[in-house]
Design a protein around this nucleic acid. Sequence first.
DNA 1: GTGAAAGCGCTAACAT
DNA 2: ATGTTAGCGCTTTCAC
Lengths: 343, 343
Amino acid sequence: MAKKNHTLKDIAVLAKVSRGTVDRVIHKRGRVSDEARKKVEQVLDQIDYRPNLIAKSLKKHKNHMIGAVIPKKEEGEYWQQCARGIRKAEIELRQFGISLIYFPFSSIQEDFEKQLSKAISQDLDALLLVPIYPEPLQHLFIKLRELKIPVAFLNTNMHGFEQAVFLGQANRKSGRLAGQLMDYMINDGGQGKLLVMHLGIKSGHSTHLAEKENGFRAYFSEKYAHTEIEVLSSDSTSDITDLELHLSDVAGIFVTTSKIHQLNSHLKLHPHIKTIGYDLIPRNIESLKKGSVNILLNQNPELQSYKGITTLSDFLLYTKDIPKRKLFPVDIVVSENIDDFIQ
Amino acid sequence: MAKKNHTLKDIAVLAKVSRGTVDRVIHKRGRVSDEARKKVEQVLDQIDYRPNLIAKSLKKHKNHMIGAVIPKKEEGEYWQQCARGIRKAEIELRQFGISLIYFPFSSIQEDFEKQLSKAISQDLDALLLVPIYPEPLQHLFIKLRELKIPVAFLNTNMHGFEQAVFLGQANRKSGRLAGQLMDYMINDGGQGKLLVMHLGIKSGHSTHLAEKENGFRAYFSEKYAHTEIEVLSSDSTSDITDLELHLSDVAGIFVTTSKIHQLNSHLKLHPHIKTIGYDLIPRNIESLKKGSVNILLNQNPELQSYKGITTLSDFLLYTKDIPKRKLFPVDIVVSENIDDFIQ
DNA sequence: GTGAAAGCGCTAACAT
DNA sequence: ATGTTAGCGCTTTCAC
């Protein structure tokens, strides 16, 4: 038994009922007599029935629409990569009757609000979105919840949704990882203090950064009695012109944002300082190749958004379950393996 | 135009011919009059026809069989992971009418020969295999080539096959990467020599190891005038008992195989020595967590074999192209991110 | 050379 | 409550 893949028809024959009845039993659509149900269930116990997802999908075929509410490409290379992942999924899935509609927003509240409203009003079959300003825009998220369509959240998680997947990182963990890598590079945490820098922060992202910082600190406080760790924040380049003052006895710098490239001119003067930053944006890649940055942690926005779309489409096409969360490991990127990660 | 996804039927209507004719034109099956062909081609130029892969697959459905000629699980944890990836794909693909047949071999020539012959004689629809002893068994590989079925090669590539994908690593590159990571850890290549160890080598794998070694050497020779690099090979544990003699002024050890855990007792005595090894097998993981090993490079056998099967099934189900090669980046694993990679 | 039609496995509307 | 049937888009067989 269990060799052949049984079909609904097989089961109907074995249970001596009609295909319709079998279907009703399997999908619990009711309107079946106990007697018939028992007969079918008996057969189902015997064999290992797996519905043919391809047939199911073919039947249901109704050109699914997935909306993507994501920051505009102009918002930075990170979001460009994110868009690339979505685009890749779009091309692959077109042949399966999935199409995408984009709702790109610039990161001001009004624009996000506008785009999300537009998306909500379009009765889509699923939605991928990067949720920002959740508090002031509660009413919108409530509306979204009421739609009861599957949602994929990128970067920031939201709760209270029935069918929702979160695609993102464990920020604290990546901070810890940065700690260990830094530790390896500065050779056992001894001499010199460390700098954690939150560069070019945009509103709404600060909790992520704090988590990274905490992880970084946690690593060192667990391993060494005390390592001196100083924190610097800034949302513009001007703030870091007087950075020089801080760099005298610094052994390593951990930048929690994608802006490590802003330090380039400083780092040239201090080649011994070990540096870890985030994200494979062109200017960082350049810095990595030139050696002013030692390690980049890649949060892999392309893969995340790609998986976001495929998770949704697996649900739409094959009624596969939507997992609660998909956490992606960060890639550790140095100049010797950077090529594996770009294109 | 191009909004809706056009079907064969649509085209037939537009071209005022039958669906059969359209199909014949698209698939170049001949037996079409020039006149009819032109009409169809004209329509095809106008619209963007994308055949519905799901329908195609449903129609063709004929329980495809994929054979897997891979080392037995007893051959080591690496192959066990490999088997897990295949198993994962098997479970996922069962519902699409793909089934697998396993031909596990123990790594002696006779057994491999036997299993591969068996696989060849079973008229499978596709084959995944780990090719070893290609020279002495040329006749078998010639036979395999003649079968003209799609093949996925794991770990070692073979040439002259029409539909074949190679899934594996760029070994030299991973050696270079190990070089850079070592460089980072020993702080700029200065004091102390380095050891490259080929531990527990099995026949047939030595070119891989040499490539890794070369990459490692290349990194250092390009960066520093001269770094002293010593090489040690062994195919049994006994050879490394006198290792102690070599360890006096060693700064780092790079083990090109998965056997770095064999060094555990030695490393305890020299905690300052930095170590890089391969593969997430339990004893290595333990060593990593305990700190006697600093970095493990994960060649990701599970993902490789999984992708091997899915590449083949994408071809069988959806007639998607088979790429020439899929090279996987190695994961850089330290104790702080090991959890991301196990289970 | 061409069109008509069956059928892959499933769902859902429609009879009974 | 249950059985029958049409049809998703494609391939393939079979008449003509």
